[in-house]
Computed example of a mutant assay.
Amino acid sequence: MQRSPVGVVIATRDRSAGLALTLRHLLALPERPEIVVADNASTDDTRALLARDFPQVRVLALPFNRGALARTHGVRALRTPYVAFSDDDSWWEPGALAEAARLFAVHPRLGLLAARTLVGPENEPDPLNKVLADSPLGTATDLPGTQVLGFLACACVVRRTAYLDAGGFHPLLFFGAEETLLAYDLAARGWGVTHCPGVVAHHHPAPGPRTDRPAVQRRNELLTAWLRRPLPYAMARTRAVAAEARRDPHARRALREAAARLPGALRARRALPPYLERAARLLDTDTGGTAGTDPGGPV
């Protein structure tokens, strides 16, 4: 049986039990995708488990934690024209990868497809589904679905050439709210970024809050503003976080960590083209600037 034109990349760190469950779901898919696990220097039994129980899965044993950049290592290792991302707590509905491949094949400008995400054993719709479906950016005649500038990294499929053309996930952000910057960079190069609800992913995040996630997300939202948005906008966002930092420890940490990374952000700064800045502002108004962040990705 011929393998799928969609490969799967999983970035993981120290979550061997969840990774094993994800791999069992992915290996049972009728599309039989090639799977690459990019292991971010796990200290648990992840690598032993992969070697023992999943010899058919390709493993990239990274020497240290590369954050979201591990996904780019995985994309480079694959040669499939399309790449789906899973986390170690997410997988794809049977038939979803085949539908994604069909959409990419008939829409050559499509660079990234954001799936509809179902959460937990009850298959509850992720609240982001509605945000993406109601995007004010509307449709384009040469693209499927609704145009967006946000997605969940654990529930998206990319055209490999488009992802590499855009540079992949930015190393400055590491993990947390890294999706918006990639969406900006794809769209700035003319690639379409859309939400296609006919492609379905499942996400089973561990219960309970992740205490560091709010600060990391806010830090990366600030850095994304400095990397791509107009300077007055970036300064206004920074002033707002500074005001919140007087009473909010998450804001204090976000501000401190963003300041440490600011020189790197300024060196890599590349403002969005005017048409894309207008789209970003429209989405800021519509969603409060929070669409497209994954609260449960690996760190």
Rank of each mutant, 00 (worst) to 15 (best):
V6K: 01
V6P: 01
V6M: 04
D14Q: 11
S16G: 14
S16C: 15
A17N: 14
A20K: 08
T22D: 14
L29F: 13
R32H: 06
R32G: 03
P33L: 10
P33A: 07
E34K: 10
V36M: 08
V37Y: 03
V37R: 03
T46M: 03
A51T: 04
R52M: 09
F54W: 01
L60Q: 09
A61I: 10
L62W: 08
G67N: 14
R71K: 10
T72K: 10
T80K: 05
S90Y: 08
G95D: 07
A101Y: 12
A101T: 14
A114K: 14
A114E: 15
A114M: 10
A115N: 03
E124I: 02
P125D: 06
L132G: 05
D134R: 09
D142Q: 07
L143Y: 02
G145V: 09
V148K: 06
L149R: 07
A155Y: 08
C156S: 03
V157D: 05
A162Y: 14
F175G: 01
A177T: 04
L182R: 06
A187Q: 00
G192Q: 05
G192Y: 08
C196W: 05
V199T: 07
V200Y: 07
V200L: 13
H203K: 05
H203E: 02
T211E: 12
W226P: 00
E244H: 00
E244F: 01
D248P: 03
D248L: 01
H250D: 03
L255T: 01
A258Y: 02
R267I: 05
A268N: 15
P274M: 03
E277P: 14
G292C: 13
P295E: 10
P298G: 09
P298F: 10
